[in-house]
Amino acid sequence: MKPNNIFKRIMTGIALIFGFLSYSQVGLGTPTPHPSSDLDLGADNKALYLNRVSNTTVINDPQPGMLVFDTSEHCVKAYQDDPPKWSGCLDSASGTVSGFTCSSASFTPATATQGAAYTGTLTIPYTGGNGGTYTAQSFTQNGLTFTLTAGNFSIGTGNLVYNINGIPIASGTTSVNIMAGGQSCNGLTLNVNP
């Protein structure tokens, strides 16, 4: 066997041994990255600094799992699959508002009729939204089911919208109390005709 071939075989064997012994993890700030990670940021006095964009639509060909900091909504967002889209804010804190403008809350349509199907909305304006999330709500009053789909408060002003479906049982007024974002509106009334 030629010396050149022996050298190639030895080097191939050494490369295979090192390949089995090496790890694919990368550690920044740690000499021993966690074995289940691809990248281990081990510093205890630094943070990960995400890309900052003012509008996620400027990102060409986004892929599931991408993360950005949205500077217009002041939060972290992730690109997700099925359906493909950017998520809402990934804030771990619950969304809050500084107040509801209860006097401007409105039912559309403005009246219902006892014993007749009603489909409408209750819209409540708010101020001081922090962009955080709020949970879904559903409750029934006088045969009408009020449903709030989970979502995010806008930064600043916005509207909380409940969908209403059902058949009013009694005529008069249907009064509801709303609580979300650390604030409440009490005694919002829908007129129900006989």
Rank of each mutant, 00 (worst) to 15 (best):
T147Q: 07
P35T: 13
N177D: 15
I59R: 13
S37W: 03
S87L: 05
A43M: 06
A47R: 14
Y134N: 02
K8G: 09
T133R: 13
S54F: 03
L144E: 05
S104I: 09
P35E: 11
A116C: 09
A170I: 14
R9C: 10
G88C: 07
A116S: 15
S106C: 12
G131K: 11
G182P: 08
L148M: 09
S22K: 07
G29E: 08
K8M: 10
V26Q: 10
A15M: 06
Q137G: 00
G187R: 11
A112S: 09
Y49V: 12
T71A: 06
V58L: 11
T123C: 01
G182H: 10
I167K: 13
T30N: 14
F100D: 02
R9G: 10
A117E: 09
E73H: 03
S36E: 12
N5L: 15
G120C: 11
T127L: 04
E73I: 11
G99K: 11
D91M: 02
N60D: 13
S103W: 01
Y162K: 12
T108D: 10
K77C: 01
A110Y: 01
A116N: 14
Q63L: 03
G156C: 07
Q183V: 08
G143S: 06
F100C: 09
G13W: 04
V26A: 08
A136D: 01
I59D: 11
L160Q: 04
I124G: 03
V53N: 03
L122S: 12
N51C: 09
N130Q: 09
S154T: 15
T96C: 00
L41R: 08
T113C: 05
T135V: 05
A43T: 04
A110W: 00
T30G: 12
L148E: 05
S87A: 08
G13C: 09
F7E: 13
L188K: 05
K8T: 07
A117G: 05
A116H: 12
P125N: 12
D40E: 09
S92T: 14
N51G: 12
S87H: 07
A112Y: 01
T56R: 03
P31Q: 13
N163S: 14
Y126A: 03
V97Y: 06
G95Y: 00
T149Q: 14
S94F: 06
L122D: 13
L90Q: 05
S22I: 14
Y118S: 04
D44Y: 07
T140K: 05
G131C: 12
T57C: 00
L190E: 00
G42K: 09
F7D: 11
T174W: 01
P31I: 13
Y134K: 03
G132W: 00
T147A: 10
A105L: 04
A93V: 04
N191Y: 13
S94L: 10
F107N: 01
L39Q: 04
N60V: 11
V58Y: 08
N159V: 05
M1S: 11
V68K: 01
G172C: 08
N177H: 13
T149E: 14
G151R: 00
K8A: 14
P64S: 00
S87V: 05
G95S: 02
T32A: 15
